[in-house]
Amino acid sequence: ASPVSGTSKPLFLCSPFVEAALVKGNFKPIVMLPKYVEVNEWVASNIFDFYQNVNMFYGVITECCTQESCPTMCAGSSLNYTWINQDRKSVQLPAPTYIDFVMTWVQNLLDDDTIFPTKAGRDFPQNFPSTIKHVYRQLLRVFAHIYYAHYHQILHLRSEPHFNSLFAHFLAFGREYELLDIKDLKGAPNAPVSVGPLWERWKEMGTLEG
C-alpha cells in the first residue's frame, strides 16, 4: 500500500518523515519527575494522557483498520501479537479487535478508583508499578501496529509530526520510569518489530536521549 520509491525502508524511517515533529527539542523537561511530587501520581497522570492521545489517533484511522485490512495484530512482516484470553491461552485476533480489547481494558483500569485513585486521601495500590508496566506494554503494541500498518494513512492525513512526537514522548517517558523494555520495542531477531529502528534513528537525531 505504500508507494515507496527506490528504497525498501519503511516510510516512517525515511526522510523527511522520520524528522517530522510537532515538539522540537528534548522531552526531558516534560518527562522528568517534578521535585516533591509523588512519582505514582506523576506516572498515572502521564499514562492517562498517553492513553487518551493514542486512543484519539487510533480513532482517526479506525476506518482503515478493519478485520479485512488487518486480520492479525501485526507490527512487522513476521510479527503478530497474541492476546491472552480468559483461559490464559494465546489467541490471534484481528488488529481492530485486539486494539479494542486493549483500549477497553485500559479504560476500565483508569475508571477503577482502587487502581487509579481519584478520591482525596486514597493511595495507589501496592502493585501499581506492575499494572502500569502492563499498560505501557500494550499501548506500545498499539503504536507499533499503527506505524507498521497505517503510517501511510497518517501521512495522507498530514498527522506524522503529531504522531511522531507522541510516540517519541511515549518512548522517552517509558525510558525514564523503566516501563520500556527495549526487547519489546525491537522484538525478537526472527520477528523484529518494524518500528524498532526508529529508536536508534531518533537517538542519533537527538530526539531521544541515549
Binding site: P3, H156, L157
Partner: peptide, 15 residues
C-alpha cells in the same frame, strides 16, 4: 536531500 528522501503524494481521497 538525504539518500533516503522520498516523495509521498498525499490525498484524503480514500477517507
Amino acid at each position: 536531500k538525504p539518500a533516503d528522501y522520498v516523495y509521498f503524494d498525499r490525498t484524503t481521497a480514500g477517507f
